[in-house]
Design a protein around this nucleic acid. Structure first.
Length: 472
RNA sequence: GACCCCAUCGUCUAGAGGCCCAGGACGCCGCCUUCUCAAGGCGGAAACCGGGGUUCGAAUCCCUGUGGGGUCACCA
């Protein structure tokens, strides 16, 4: 391929951008950026009953969030537009007419009912239904209701060298004269995609491998139209844990849902690209590295199971790379959404800094940090174990110590805890745990001095008093 | 059912005939560190789908069985 790479992502706007689509878009985008080529976004909205403007917007939103920018597209324009299929009807019509004129396509006047009857009969006879060629030789009469069918050869086969799957050949006898233009003039997928790809000068088609069975018939159309055939790369499917194709019942499949769950786009991209592609033993990649390293030759041929646990780990890795300030900035909306009166200030920065090693998503971070902003939720088991008569004097001693401090600093607090422990010949844990329960409601938190400092004197004293009262 | 694709630890994968009694990562388990939780360090269990070939030698090549996935529309 010496020509400049032109690839595309061509979703149909029938729902949000899902994980599988995002990965297809990502691989195309990476290859365009890797080669200095062009990434085209085309919206395949010919199924008017299922396509919506909202879905179209949702796709843009998902792509933008992931950072996959397109060079040509519906909103952006470009030299080969329009990029919305419903605005290209005349282009399909012209191409279909050319095929009719050359005898490579023909009008079919069969009704849907007639065809369904044939299909039913074939099913009963347990054979595969193929269009019987009823109208193959009939003269073209545009005044009668009709669809346009593409004439496929009866014998021989068509194949291509797939960039990820290698050589694939499809015998023509498994194909049929399929409909390329519906009676209302709207093209069907295979024709629309071919006409668009040729007119948009796409020279590499990378898409899900659920399209391998469409490829031979599309190649036949390229040839019939007299256009060069692009290269193809068929990407393996993404599966759920049960090895069935990933769908809603496996959990969230919308890219945006992961944003809302507190994932970073870098992490989603990183995880998605590694699902089906690898570069030695490396797991964490920046976008720049991906652009540099990505190649279809390293894309595997096997379907992969989507693993939320690993994506969460990748997210944690990315979260940890953030500066505390940036982390806080990204976390703020999640704290607010969880009902906390947080602001982008030193307190939040410190909290998120402490949470950075401890939480794997921004949602988890906000939940984890609740007690810094909201009243504690006392864990009954923790209370039963640590807020008891035995610990009352310890809490009291710590309380009094804190009460006597002008400002809260780590060293004096540490001295205080050590003194309280030493005075009773107890380990530090015996003091820290009850205090932790008093201050946070549970038995797990950052270092106890950090917690006290962050909570501040008034709140710390208040919570200790409340706890002391509960010790019975 | 027909046609097509695929097949290494539970999962993502490395492996392009000898470097592999198979390496990394997630998850899981244990130990260390320790005021708890994380993080970190160390260690562990865990795979070449079965059967035939080819070859001095196969996870790697071929055939076949099996399994999984995909496609069979006036959907995309």
């Amino acid at each position: 391929m010496t020509e400049k790479v032109r690839v595309r992502f061509a979703p149909s706007p029938t729902g949000y951008l899902h994980i599988g689509g995002a990965r297809t878009a990502l691989f195309n985008w990476l290859w365009a950026r890797h080669t200095g080529g062009t990434f085209v976004l085309r919206i395949e909205d010919t199924d008017q009953s299922r396509s919506t403007k909202q879905a179209e917007e949702a796709i843009y939103e998902g792509m933008r969030w992931l950072g996959l920018d397109w060079d040509e597209g519906p909103d952006k324009g470009g030299p080969h537009g329009p990029y919305l299929q419903m605005e290209r009807l005349d282009i399909y019509k012209a191409h279909a007419e050319q095929l009719i004129k050359e005898g490579k396509a023909f009008a079919c006047y069969c009704t849907k009912e007639e065809l369904d009857a044939g299909r039913k009969k074939a099913e009963a006879a347990k054979v595969q239904f193929r269009y019987p060629g009823t109208c193959r030789e009939k003269p073209y009469d545009p005044s009668k209701p009709h669809v346009i069918r593409f004439r496929v050869p009866e014998t021989g086969s068509t194949g291509w060298n797939d960039l990820v799957k290698g050589r694939i050949d499809t015998p023509h006898d498994t194909l049929q004269d399929e409909v390329i233009l519906r009676s209302d003039g709207v093209p069907l997928y295979n024709f629309g995609a071919v006409v668009d790809d040729v007119t948009m000068k796409i020279n590499l088609v990378a898409r899900g491998d659920d399209h391998v069975n469409n490829t031979a018939r599309q190649i036949l159309m390229y040839q019939a139209l007299g256009y060069p055939v692009p290269h193809f790369a068929h990407l393996p499917m993404i599966l759920g844990a049960d090895k069935a194709r990933l769908s809603k019942r496996h959990g969230a499949t919308s890219v945006i849902a992961y944003r809302d769950m507190g994932f970073l786009p870098e992490a989603v991209v990183n995880y998605l690209v590694r699902l089906g592609w690898s570069h030695g033993d490396q797991e964490i990649f920046t976008l720049d590295e991906l652009v540099k390293f990505f190649d279809f030759k390293d894309v595997g041929a096997t379907a992969g199971v989507f693993n939320p646990d690993k994506m969460t780990w990748v997210n944690h890795e990315w979260l940890r790379k953030l500066t505390p300030e940036k982390h806080a900035e990204l976390a703020l909306p999640f704290f607010k959404a969880a009902g906390m009166d947080a602001a982008l200030d030193a307190k939040l920065v410190k909290i998120t800094a402490l949470g950075q090693e401890r939480t794997k998503t921004l949602v988890e971070l906000a939940t984890w940090g609740r007690y810094f902003y909201l009243p504690i939720e006392l864990d009954p088991k923790a209370k039963a174990k640590f807020l008891v008569p035995d610990t009352k004097p310890l809490l009291q001693a710590v309380r009094d110590g804190i009460a006597g401090m002008e400002t809260l600093e780590e060293k004096p607090l540490e001295a205080l805890f050590n003194d309280v422990a030493a005075a009773r010949a107890l380990g530090l844990g015996k003091i820290a745990q009850p205090v932790r329960v008093a201050l946070t409601g549970g038995t797990a938190s950052p270092g106890i001095y950090d917690v006290i400092i962050l909570l501040g004197k008034a709140t710390s004293l208040q919570r200790l008093d409340d706890a002391i009262a509960l010790c019975g």
